[in-house]
Design a protein around this nucleic acid. Structure first.
Lengths: 235, 235
DNA sequence: ACAAACAAGCATGCAAGCCTGCATGTAAGT
DNA sequence: ACTTACATGCAGGCTTGCATGCTTGTTTGT
């Protein structure tokens, strides 16, 4: 497992590198370029030629590591998910203590959904509807992202264990809102501020349901109490 | 292949039509085919050739009416929006009286969002993010759809006049949820039922905020939620 | 009313461009 | 020497827009 340092555009002098280093470097270059390409020119604009160009490698090198376009995209998705998870956790860790709460977490999540990598994922998700091959790669993408969010949140708010029954639908509602907002945000970048307004509303609600970790020690401890995390609380 | 025009009106597939009729017919064929194409094979799969093939007209005819691909798509969007609005109103009118309420309306809206035309719009919305030309056509698409929904709902629930201030964000929240759900639905067609669960939750909430028009005489709280129509209940 | 002239609808072929995958050849590491 | 990483050229397929020619409807002159 190559553990190259994150994301940098470092081009060290091309001295003598081990095969593993060469391999790893080229692959990272290619995968980053793929994500960037998806985010900037969309799925239909993402060609292996363009990816290779952005990565600064030859088409031959690209084909050597990822013989087909699908293998390239497949690897890029894994690359992307792992990188996003790390970025989110790191960002949360660096958050000032007073924002170590659900609101801060949702703000970060919103940032994630507006980031280029997330837009790359949206491109893939939408495109995979009509592309059988791509669909095979993205079929479980929804659940994976959902699971990623769930895991991270549980890790960040270990004591806020909502009843297992209420989590799925509630979380999925939140997820749906974020996806919907991100689609619109991808279009107009929220020049009108509407998306922000919706998001603010959502944060307010979440704050009511998930108190700050610091304050929750003496308060919420009921097992089945907080039934609705999402907008709906009936049923 | 040619139909002899000598003998007057025969059992030809098409008799003598006025130019306006020919024109209108071919255009409708093309626009419907464009929407169908977008819905079935996505933006990247929608080529003028494929549209012409599906419409059953020649490429020349297509180019005659819509010289460039963008003009074709532009016309298709207008065609689509108008058609969807009519379809939604007609569907609501045919709804059994006992479902002439907000829940029935939302069910229909959910059907709309899952329909092929809506998926065509989603394709365009996502693609226009990275396509400058397309973006020019779709820049106000969000607001237009939102306005369409708003108009229709006001027409269907004339007495449910929510305070003007609360409508925008609340409606946009609902809209975001539907967009988000439709993205996911486009992927897996809700084989798991999660999207339906989220939608059900949403309907329950809406029913609390917007009572049945018929039954609101006995309901005392039809003015209850001026501040929170969406999931968020004010701050 | 008829026929010629005109315009509009429609069909087909072509050129330029791009994308993908392959196949061959070269350089670098083991 | 031998494998791996990398570079470049080629072939087939597809898309878009244009140009040319044919068919059908409409108009106009007599």
């Amino acid at each position: 497992m190559p553990v190259t340092s994150g994301g940098g555009t470092e081009v060290a002098p091309v001295g003598r590198r081990t095969q593993q280093e060469r391999r790893s470097r080229t692959q990272t270059l290619l995968l980053d370029a793929t994500v960037e390409c998806l985010a900037e020119v969309g799925w239909s604009g993402t060609s292996t030629t363009e990816v290779a160009r952005r990565a600064g490698v030859s088409r031959g090198a690209q084909q050597h590591h990822y013989p087909t376009k699908m293998e390239l995209v497949d690897a890029a998705v894994e690359h992307l998910l792992e990188r996003q998870r790390q970025a989110y956790e790191a960002a949360f860790a660096e958050l000032p203590p007073e924002r170590h709460n659900i609101e801060g977490a949702l703000d970060l999540l919103w940032d994630v959904f507006r980031s280029p990598p997330a837009r790359a994922l949206l491109e893939l998700a939408v495109a995979s509807r009509t592309d059988a091959e791509l669909r095979a790669l993205c079929s479980d993408l929804n659940d994976r992202v959902l699971q990623l969010i769930l895991d991270t949140f549980e890790q960040l708010f270990p004591r806020t264990h909502l009843p297992d029954d209420s989590i799925p639908t509630a979380l999925r509602t939140v997820y749906a809102v974020y996806v919907g907002l991100s689609v619109q945000n991808a279009l107009d970048d929220d020049v009108s501020g509407h998306q922000r307004a919706v998001h603010d509303q959502f944060k307010s609600l979440a704050r009511l349901l998930i108190p700050d970790p610091d304050a929750d020690a003496r308060d919420t401890r009921h097992e089945a109490g907080p039934q609705g995390t999402g907008p709906g609380d009936s049923h």
